[in-house]
């Protein structure tokens, strides 16, 4: 515990970037027909902010993340990271997907080292890989192969693989969606702690209302496809948050109502 106190005493600079999504529209061509998925989405994320996107299944949340990651180009509108237009993938905006998608032929260490290796800086930066593996608590599994890991451990490796790049924006695509509920609760706390220590901006897609409220500064509620922003809700509560907090419960009721699920409350 002493070590933890000392690490917490170190002040990390806020490394988060500003993200501007301006009038972004996107569509897919399926069998000759055009299927609109995003309709004029406007969203500004301040440096170091934790924003959660909530919306019905298939509404285009993940598409928005792919645009932010630069994996696809929008049909309309612009995305900017710190005033610079996003034209392609960049290690300052790393995505953690719902599936850990670890490379099965690489050990945990080599998987985490992937980003530095791809950028050609691994030789001088090996200590960063070691540090981030320690950070997610997988020191004793550094030489394990992915098939030897549990679901939670694999997702921690995926998180470490993203964090080793010191991202300015961490893009999370339902990263805890496939984990069992106990592991999920534990990982939510870890995620909050990491975000507070590192100071990156975070964009999280989830369909778990409670998860969004426990983690995020702001919750954006999206409409059905094509996705538009239905509500932008600030969650003004300090961390660590308690799931039974009546303020959060009230917000939860409000959000479920926006999603057309008030009857379930």
């Amino acid at each position: 515990m002493v070590t933890q106190a000392t690490t917490e005493a170190i002040v990390y600079p806020a490394v988060g970037a500003e993200l501007d999504i301006e009038g972004v529209s996107h569509a897919f061509d399926i069998d000759g027909a055009t299927l609109p998925v995003l309709d004029n989405v406007n969203l500004a994320i301040a440096p170091g902010e934790f924003v959660a996107l909530l919306g019905p299944s298939g509404c285009g949340k993940s598409t928005l993340l792919r645009l932010v990651a630069g994996l696809e180009k929008p049909r309309g509108g612009t995305l900017r990271e710190d005033e610079i237009r996003i034209t392609g993938p960049h290690p300052s905006r790393v995505v953690v997907f719902q599936d850990p998608t670890l490379f099965p032929w690489r050990t945990v260490w080599d998987n985490v080292a992937l980003g530095l290796e791809a950028q050609g800086i691994l030789k001088t930066q090996r200590h960063r890989v070691d540090a981030v593996i320690d950070l997610v608590g997988l020191t004793s599994f550094r030489n394990a192969y992915p098939h030897q890991l549990s679901g939670g451990m694999a997702q921690r490796v995926a998180l470490a693989r993203a964090l080793v790049n010191d991202p300015k924006i961490l893009v999370l695509d339902e990263p805890l969606g496939k984990l069992d509920s106990l592991t999920r609760i534990a990982m939510q706390s870890e995620l909050t702690a990491l975000w507070q220590r590192k100071g990156f901006s975070t964009l999280l897609v989830t369909h778990d209302v409670e998860e969004a409220l426990v983690l995020a500064n702001r919750v954006i509620v999206l409409s059905d496809r094509p996705a538009r922003i239905k509500a932008d809700i600030a969650v003004a509560r300090p961390y660590p948050r308690h799931r039974g907090d009546p303020y959060l419960a009230e917000l939860r009721k409000q959000i479920l109502g926006l999603l057309g699920l008030e009857a379930t409350w």
């Binding site: 290690p91 998608t101 490379f103 791809a118």
Partner: peptide, 21 residues
């Protein structure tokens, strides 16, 4: 799987890295 390429690309991989690694 294209997911492997997506992961590598967001981590800064160039085409040669995608082929070889």
């Amino acid at each position: 799987s294209s997911a492997y390429y997506d992961v590598a690309r967001t981590l800064g991989a160039k085409p040669s890295f995608l082929v070889l690694k």
